[in-house]
């Protein structure tokens, strides 16, 4: 497998072409906007939380394949997680992408999210993969603000 196939795995190409949960969530109780000024990637996330569990999470936005697929897969993975589980997932995902926490991330059971493990070899693309996650964290932490990856 070449480096490229490693980065643009089928599942990433698929989620880029047909993003899941890409829609506005009316009456979301947590929202935030994320922006990557370097790429122009732009994402809005919408979250409904019930009894400490992510009931629904959607996104809107435009960006490169990595950022779109990351947002799409993120929404699938976060749904049904408790807020604490979501935080742990963010931390592990971030560790894997930045290559800071390889060992634990390999055993973290990141499931489908492991398709992004190749990103750590592309430092210029790390922000693309983490934008949606940073935005979700901002939404959950404050209930709505704008974040940038800078």
């Amino acid at each position: 497998m070449s480096d490229l196939d490693d980065l643009y795995q089928e599942i990433i190409l698929d989620h880029n072409k047909s993003p899941r949960n890409r829609r506005k969530l009316e009456q979301a109780d947590h929202t935030a906007e994320g922006y990557n000024p370097l790429c122009g990637d732009h994402v809005n996330v919408f979250i409904n939380v019930e009894n400490g569990v992510v009931k629904e999470v959607t996104f809107e936005g435009s960006g490169c394949a990595i950022s779109t697929a990351s947002a799409s897969l993120m929404t699938e993975e976060l749904k049904g997680k408790t807020l604490d589980e979501a935080k742990v997932l963010f931390k592990r995902f971030h560790g894997m992408i930045t290559g800071e926490d390889r060992e634990s991330s390999e055993e973290a059971g990141l499931g489908k999210l492991e398709v992004f493990s190749g990103v750590c070899r592309y430092p210029a693309r790390v922000k693309c993969a983490t934008l949606a996650w940073h935005t979700v964290r901002a939404a959950l932490d404050s209930g709505g603000e704008s974040v940038t990856t800078e």
Binding site: D3, L7, Y8, L38, C39, G40, C64, Y122, A124, R125
Partner: peptide, 21 residues
């Protein structure tokens, strides 16, 4: 295809340095 994806493929597969942005 987003320009950044084009730029990454040009670089990693072909050694071509272009600007995407």
């Amino acid at each position: 295809v987003h320009p950044h994806d084009v730029g990454t493929i040009l670089d990693s597969e072909f050694g071509i340095a272009v600007r995407a942005g």
